[in-house]
C-alpha cells in the first residue's frame, strides 16, 4: 500500500517534472531504484536516496566514478553504474532523488538510542571524537554536500562507520579520522540512534 503509493508518486513526479527528466532518464532512475528500492528508500545494503542532499548525491556519484569510494560493494556495483554517467545525468538524478520525501528506517536497537544521541550531540572528548551535530545538523538533516544521516538504515550506517576504520574511502576527510576512533559499541549506538530520526521537511 505504502510502497504502491510511493511508486505512484514517483511516476507522477517523473511525469510532471517533464523538463529535466525525459523518457530516457527515467530509465536511469530505474537503474538506481533496482537496488535502492522502488521508492528509493533503500534496500538491504543499498542506502536510501530519497531526501538525501542534492549536492551530496552528486559528489558521491563523482567519487564512485573516480574510484574514491572503494569498498567491495562500491567496486562491484557503483563503479560500473557511474562509469558512463554524464555530469548532466548525475545532476538530474541527484535533483530527482533529493526531492523525494525520506522515510526513517527505524531498524536500530532502541535501547542504544540514548547513548547514540549523546555521542551525536556531544562527541566523546576523551577519545577526541568530534560531535556529529556540528556538521550534520541538529536533526541529522545534513546540508549542501554534507549528507542527511537521519533515518538511514542501521546496517548501512554501521558498515559505513566501520569501513572508515578499515581504510576505505580514505579521501573523505575528516570522516576516516573521526569514525576510526569509535569503538564497535559506539558505532552500534550511533547507527541505532540515527536510524530512528524522522524529518520535518525537505526545506
Amino acid at each position: 500500500m505504502n510502497l504502491n503509493t510511493s511508486k505512484m508518486a514517483i511516476l507522477v513526479i517523473a511525469f510532471l517534472a517533464g523538463g529535466p527528466l525525459q523518457a530516457e532518464e527515467s530509465l536511469a532512475i530505474r537503474n538506481c531504484t533496482w537496488c535502492h528500492g522502488s521508492s528509493a528508500q533503500g534496500l538491504s545494503t543499498a542506502p536510501r536516496l530519497a531526501g538525501q542532499r542534492d549536492q551530496y548525491i552528486q559528489n558521491q556519484l563523482l567519487s564512485f566514478s573516480e574510484h574514491l569510494r572503494d569498498n567491495p560493494l562500491s567496486q562491484q556495483y557503483m563503479w560500473p553504474a557511474t562509469a558512463h554517467l554524464s555530469p548532466q545525468a548525475a545532476h538530474d538524478l541527484s535533483a530527482y532523488f533529493s526531492a523525494l520525501p525520506p522515510v526513517p528506517a527505524n531498524d536500530g536497537d532502541p535501547e542504544l538510542a540514548a547513548a547514540g544521541r549523546a555521542i551525536y550531540d556531544e562527541g566523546i572528548a576523551d577519545s577526541d571524537v568530534s560531535a556529529c551535530v556540528v556538521c550534520h545538523g541538529p536533526n541529522a538533516e545534513g546540508v549542501r554536500g554534507i549528507p542527511r544521516l537521519g533515518g538511514l538504515s542501521y546496517p548501512y550506517l554501521k558498515r559505513r562507520l566501520e569501513q572508515w576504520g578499515e581504510g576505505f574511502h580514505a579521501a573523505a576527510a575528516p570522516m576516516p579520522q573521526i569514525a576510526g576512533r569509535l569503538s564497535p559499541n559506539q558505532i552500534d549506538a550511533l547507527a541505532s540512534y540515527l536510524s530512528f530520526i524522522g524529518y520535518e521537511s525537505l526545506e
Binding site: V134, H136, P138, G142, I146, P174
Partner: peptide, 15 residues
Amino acid sequence: KTCHGLSGEGYRGYY
C-alpha cells in the same frame, strides 16, 4: 582539525 579544517583554515559544516 577534524572540525576546524585540516589546516586550521575553518570549515563550513551545518554550523
